[in-house]
Amino acid sequence: MSQRLDAAALDKAQWRRVSPKYVVVVIVGSLIGGIVAAAIAVFAWLVLHWWWAWIALVIIAVITIVQLIIAPRRARAIGYFLRDDDLLIRRGIMFQRFVAVPYGRMQLLDIERGPIDRMLGLAELRFVTAAASSRVSIPGLVDSDAAWLRDRLVELAESRRSGL
């Protein structure tokens, strides 16, 4: 009997999803990772004559294909939800993570855009607290959404500042 974790079940959280275009970013990321790893394996196999490198190549290919298949689900699994006093974020399918960050604990907000993000008009919003392990970020936001969300979060944090 396996039960999925759903930390916000009690709140009946209305998760906001990230842009569907974010799937492209995930796919390109997995492809690049797969190609780089495969190139190393091919080099080891053909140039260094390590015969077992083809096994690694097969494993890399399988992992990449699996990643490509689950990419849409991975993108859909990302969600965020603005509660009254804190921000909820969920990520991941295999490794599910739920994080709650009170607005008052926010130290700064970052907006980042990678090259593929820029092509698609997407942005990643990073939420930095005094704890290094918080690692809270929402990728795949449409530019205008990211800017709106940043302003909204700053406004909320201002009114609930708790200091350090």
Binding site: L5, M94, F95, R97, F98, V99, A100, A131, S134, V136
Partner: peptide, 10 residues
């Protein structure tokens, strides 16, 4: 505390 996280791996 700064934030809270729950996680579940395979």
């Amino acid at each position: 505390m700064q934030s809270v996280e729950v996680e579940q791996g395979p």
